[in-house]
Design a protein around this nucleic acid. Structure first.
Length: 876
DNA sequence: GTAGTCACG
DNA sequence: ACGTACGTGACTACA
């Protein structure tokens, strides 16, 4: 068997991939789906063919000989969409990085280059495989040249293969006759004209019978049907032109050295970096076995001997810095990972003479002795530690979050990839879905732990440097790291919930839900699942023929704002709205929360520090940051949140923190002054914007001003404001214009922020937190506008988040420093809730006021509203 | 697993 | 012309 070469039709496969793979975008806003699909097809072919040589052909922009022959050639072809066009240089860079030669020649199309090279290679005795989405290439098929046409189907990519015989079988003509076929039937996609009145069926019959258009023309009188006969007679010249156009030139003057196409490693460092940038996670795993990266695992050691473990901890304490990770299986310590050099990478399992408690104690000690230590996800490990020095401790998951808050996970393999350019297997790959809890493969457990320890150690230096380079070092050390301990304290404390009262609340809802259900079915004339937007849509908009407003991807929208507009049209609508409200309260709050009440009668939510793009924290299992308050019925839920005996709740929230932050960081004199002057910022805004005396501002004017104030914080748009106020876009635009006239500093700040975001690719908060802004590089209006709003909002929301984080740390620390029994238990973005021992109430209030107000020194004073009560309901 | 909806700041 | 306010998490339905 001779050697084999694979030749790929670059544009054609890229095109096919573009339409076959759903849209993908990396965090820079680069579209990547076509590149991704291309590589997948290429790798699949390479795996199947295992060729000795590989090259990819591309068209150049310059006109080809076909343009000279036929002015309209490809003239009317649909231009490539921008999203695809962007990806052409990207795939070319990728192929170059993989050291695959690109075949390009001015005046020739990729087809011609493929034809030329495949014929030359065939002559040299090679097996040739040409990959294209374009059936034109079939004319090249021979015994030794196989044409492969990938088709994207639901089940994946299937590839049709054609040697001479396959073409004959499928098209009833020889490969070369494919050209004649095209000359008759034309090809819309290639702008080959063809002759009128002849389709695929007739063309095939004619060519099968006469062999070529020339011979067919010689026997034109015999041709049937009549329509084809006339057409051929009349348009023979056109058919000849088409034939020439469709003929692939196999003698292009292309310089091609076979040796350069020799299959190399493909997985070069450069290709790896590019894959990383494009965020091709799956693709990266192909690089896994390459290079030195995985050699670290040769130094992994499992240590089960107590004396040896002692020794390792001793050596670790003297190291420049140490990476560690307590390996947890649910509530059990399964061991610990320790790393302090490229050679010293250990997993110490909690078995035999080594107990979990021993390991926890050793790490606590180690942290007090060591110069610096790093780990991933410190908060998860804190329940197992007693006390240790905090200053030299680095949680690298947090560092990774600060460096790019847009990712959805910050696992060790992710950190390794991002910050060490290293591909290592993930926990799931090593241990399966259950992780350390279920894993029985001892070697895998040890390896996984060692990988974690190694990354915790090795990533510190590059990440520390990046934090310094990005100006986020202080934010990391003084806000995010200390906050870990604060959040852990809050999680451990939890909040007391009266189970019986919660149950009662739920039961009280059931009756009314049942009533509504009956009424809705009666009004609809049938029973259906009211909770199904799909079924509900059918009832409202088809059966009851109500006018539908918005449509969603899948059908009619039945969202509350749509239904509210229909409430007057049919009485069933308001019942549906009420039904929705009540079932929400029942399922999410009454029943939902009950499942989370722990043995101690309290709910311990988890606060997540690495989720939001803006720097806020989030709350899960359950989410205690979205307990109802706006509607009275929902608000009543808060009566079941109560302080423990002898305690009260003290609730403090920042008054309009985001708008104050905006006033301060924009430096707008008028707005800053307004905040110094007046209590009611929305009223004074109305007065200033509408040029009327403060006392004469109507409620409507105040409401409008308030909406504009909110809109500004969200990254204003006339459309959004018009929706909110139910006014026209024009009116909304006028409000905004007047607002900006009144507060020119705000306008300048927002404009500058967007401009700077476009230039730098990110925005920052007052404390240096960054949010990357990939959206702004995107071409389409929708995405770009979204990016602009985000750019305006992120510094505001983010700065407010920074401020309350500072306040939380200080409040929590001070409660402890003053030996108080009162504890911080909740944060709801601009609000802190403290469970205060009754006699400490005044001191707690003082601490809250001082630390919340003092968290940041702004040109606008931060005001705090405070309430106390015997339930969360009362304390608001 | 995704889409739609709705609770909060 | 395009068609959304910014940031989250939980629940239900449905493929």
């Amino acid at each position: 068997m001779g050697e084999k070469i694979v030749l790929i039709d670059g544009h054609s496969i890229l095109n096919r991939a573009f339409y076959g793979v759903p849209d993908l975008t990396n965090s820079e806003g680069l579209h990547t789906n076509a590149v991704y699909g291309f590589l997948n097809i290429m790798f699949k072919i390479l795996e199947e063919e295992k060729p000795d040589y590989l090259a990819v052909a591309f068209d150049l922009k310059a006109p080809t000989f076909r343009h000279k022959m036929y002015a309209e050639y490809k003239g009317t072809r649909k231009p490539m969409p921008q999203e695809l066009h962007q990806q052409v240089p990207v795939i070319q860079d990728m192929l170059r990085a993989m050291e695959i030669p690109l075949l390009m020649l001015e005046g020739y199309e990729a087809d011609d280059l493929l034809g030329t090279v495949s014929k030359r290679m065939e002559q040299e005795g090679l097996e040739v495989c040409v990959v294209s989405g374009d059936r034109d290439l079939l004319q090249l098929a021979t015994e030794h040249i196989m044409i492969r046409i990938p088709k994207t189907k639901r089940t994946g990519t299937e590839i049709e293969n054609y040697h001479t015989a396959d073409v004959l079988e499928k098209y009833q003509v020889t490969p070369l006759q494919i050209i004649d076929l095209k000359a008759l039937m034309g090809d819309a996609s290639d702008n080959i004209p063809g002759i009128p009145g002849v389709g695929e069926k007739t063309a095939t019959k004619i060519i099968a019978a006469y062999g070529s258009i020339e011979n067919a023309y010689a026997h034109v009188e015999e041709i049937k049907p009549n329509k084809a006969k006339e057409s051929l007679r009349e348009h023979y010249a056109l058919a000849q032109l088409s034939k020439e156009l469709a003929t692939i030139n196999i003698e292009a003057p292309l310089e091609f050295e076979l040796e350069e196409a020799s299959m190399g490693v493909l997985y070069t460092e450069e290709a790896f970096e590019l894959c990383k940038r494009l965020e091709f996670k799956n693709m990266l795993s192909r690089f896994e076995c390459q290079g030195p990266v995985n050699r670290v695992s040769e130094n992994f050691r499992k240590v089960s001997d107590l004396a040896e473990a002692e020794k390792i901890f001793e050596t670790a304490a003297k190291a420049a810095h140490v990476g560690f990770e307590l390996i947890l299986a649910g509530k059990r310590v399964r061991g610990c990972a320790l790393c302090f050099s490229e050679e010293d990478i250990y997993f110490i399992p909690a078995e035999g003479f080594i107990s979990g408690a021993y390991l926890c104690g050793k790490i606590d000690m180690l942290l007090n002795e060591t110069a610096a230590a790093s780990t991933l996800d410190l908060k998860a490990q804190l329940p197992f530690f007693a006390n240790h020095a905090r200053e030299k401790l680095y949680d690298l998951a947090l560092a990774a979050y600060l460096l790019n808050p847009l990712k959805d996970k910050y696992t060790y393999e992710d950190v390794a990839k991002e910050h060490m350019s290293m591909m290592i297997p993930s926990q799931e790959e090593l241990l399966g879905r259950k992780g350390f809890e279920g894993a029985e493969d001892e070697k895998a457990v040890s390896d996984c732990a060692c990988y974690i320890g190694y990354v915790a150690w090795a990533a510190l230096e590059p990440m520390q440097k990046k934090l310094l380079d990005t100006g986020m070092d202080t934010l990391f050390r003084e806000i995010e790291m200390p906050l870990v301990y604060t959040l852990h304290d809050m999680e451990r404390e939890g909040i007391r919930v009266e189970a019986a009262a919660l149950k009662q609340y739920g039961e009280q809802l059931i009756g009314r839900i049942g009533e509504l259900e009956t009424e809705i079915y009666a009004m609809a004339g049938e029973t259906f699942n009211i909770n199904s937007p799909k079924q509900l849509g059918v009832i409202l908009f088809e059966k009851l023929k109500l006018p539908y407003g918005k449509k969603t991807k899948t059908g009619y929208s039945t969202a509350a704002d749509v239904l509210e507009k229909l409430a007057d049209e049919a009485p069933v609508v308001s019942r549906i709205l009420e039904y929705r409200q009540l079932t929400k309260l029942k399922s999410t709050y009454a029943d939902g929360l009950a499942n989370y009440i722990a043995e101690d009668g309290r709910i311990h939510s988890t606060f997540k520090q690495t989720i939001t793009a803006t720097g806020r924290i989030s709350s899960t299992e359950p989410n205690l940051q979205n307990i109802p308050i706006r509607m009275e019925l929902g608000r009543l839920i808060r009566k079941v949140f109560i302080p423990k005996d002898g305690y009260v709740f003290v609730d403090a929230d920042y008054s309009q923190i985001e708008l104050r932050v905006l006033a301060a960081i924009s430096g707008d004199e008028t707005l800053i002054h307004a905040y110094r002057e007046a209590q009611d910022i929305h009223r004074i805004t109305a007065s200033q914007v509408f040029h009327i005396p403060f006392d004469e501002v109507t409620d409507l004017q105040r409401r409008n001003a308030k909406a504009v104030n909110f809109g500004i914080v969200y990254g204003i748009s006339s459309f959004g404001l018009s929706q909110d106020l139910s006014i026209t876009r024009k009116e909304a635009a006028q409000y905004i214009e007047k607002y900006f006239e009144t507060y020119p500093g705000i306008k300048k700040f927002l404009d500058d922020t967007v401009e700077n975001a476009k230039k730098e690719g990110y925005v920052t908060t007052l404390f240096g937190r960054r949010r990357p802004m990939p959206e702004l590089k995107a071409g389409n209006f929708m995405q770009r506008s979204f990016g602009e709003r985000v750019a305006m909002n992120a510094p505001i929301q983010g700065t407010a988040a920074d401020i309350i984080k500072i306040a939380m740390i200080r409040v929590n620390d001070r409660l402890k420093a003053e030996n108080l029994k009162s504890r911080l238990i909740l944060q709801v973005h601009d609000e802190l809730l403290i469970e205060a021992e009754e006699s400490e109430t005044d001191e707690v209030k003082r601490i809250l006021l001082e630390e919340m107000q003092g968290a940041a020194e702004l040109s606008v004073k931060l005001e705090i509203d405070m309430h106390t009560g015997k339930s969360w309901y009362e304390a608001k």
